[in-house]
Amino acid sequence: MYAVKQALVEELEQIRADGLYKVERELTTPQSSHVSTTQAEALNFCANNYLGLADHPDVVAAAREALDRWGFGMASVRFICGTQTQHRELERAIADFSGTEEAILFSSCFDANGGVFEVLFTAEDAIISDELNHASIIDGIRLSKARRFRYRNRDLADLRRQLEAARDAGARRTVVVTDGVFSMDGYYAPLEEICDLAEEFGAMVFVDDSHAVGFVGEHGRGTHEHCGVLDRVDIITGTLGKALGGASGGYVAAHAEIVDLLRQRARPYLFSNAVAPSVVAGSLKALEIAREAAEPRERLRTNTALFRRLMAQAGFEVLEGTHPITPVMFPGDDGARRASQVADAMLARGVYVIAFSYPVVPKGKARIRVQLSAAHSEEDVRACVAAFVAARDEVG
């Protein structure tokens, strides 16, 4: 055991030496646009709280009421005695919002993505995945015996080549898998063109819409609404842990037959406790609010545009786009160090952001990923930009 312990100590020391060690800052308040940590009070610009629903009083009240009505936990998986009427109510509401026939809840979107591929795709099939897809998709694909193809990020010509390769390999069933929004860059997948190619080759389309559901598109239904392909995506996965209340839980929304088969065979569904009653009730209320959240969605767009414009004027390199994920780039060999120092200097000035570097992002492309919220005021956005400028001047 000593040898193992010493090896782990050395591995951890190397992670620290590489500047990659993650320190979890403890919040002493509820998740919100303004938080307190054990170090400071701060404006929060690093949460996935896009609509500001994580501490919304109506969401909190619904969750609190559910504790009295439905209890604390299910103490069971769904097919034994872990399904309440509100679980099915939430699934029907998600399907309706997504524009699909059915939906199925998982304990997380990581589990949702981990449960699909093994069930639907065998050694006779082909999975074609964007190279920058989320880790949960990558892990889910590994559980399947299907042939794997990868295409360059949002590269439609390369996607065509991979579709041709899958066809030439004699794949029985082919699926193109993509994030709706790529979480480190804030880029949208070109879903209309992806659906065109998929239909040309007779392939299915699978979209993880975790960073879009609730606030992207005219009615917040996601990237398939944003791209005008509401009825052309076969499988949608998403999370309840971001815009829809920010708690936990994920889902698959799809054709009824797909969902039914997942209920029978998806291992993360069959062997995990049902989503907690208070989370279900709070998520139902969050989804209800999101349906009518035209004004918060517009405020989120306004905050995002303002931040991007002010940061460009201040001379920062910001990846182009319109999504509230706004990466502020620190390129070069010393970028990881500078990004980390700037993030620390900003917290000292009352603005909470997080730096990302290799292996989370490619070498030489370190960044601070800023995430805007409808709960931020214009004053909050301007204060964040001012903190960036002051921290950059301090760090050099």
Rank of each mutant, 00 (worst) to 15 (best):
L53N: 02
E13G: 08
D208H: 09
E91Y: 07
F356P: 01
A391M: 05
R161A: 12
I354K: 14
A243N: 06
Y2H: 09
R69P: 07
D155T: 09
P296V: 06
E131G: 02
H219R: 15
R267M: 09
A123F: 07
I141G: 01
Y358Q: 11
V59L: 06
Y251L: 07
T174M: 04
R221H: 09
E89K: 11
A66F: 05
E89V: 04
E317Q: 07
L51N: 02
Q39T: 12
A386H: 07
T38L: 05
V351L: 10
A386P: 04
T239F: 03
G82A: 10
S107W: 04
I104T: 07
A54S: 15
D185G: 04
L261P: 02
S76A: 15
I128N: 03
D168P: 00
A312N: 06
R267N: 04
V35A: 02
I194G: 00
D209R: 04
P30A: 13
F45G: 01
M1T: 14
V370N: 00
H56V: 02
V395L: 09
L191S: 04
F149V: 07
K363T: 07
R367G: 01
A355F: 02
S129K: 10
A166L: 00
V216E: 09
E320A: 15
T304N: 02
D208A: 15
S98K: 09
T302W: 03
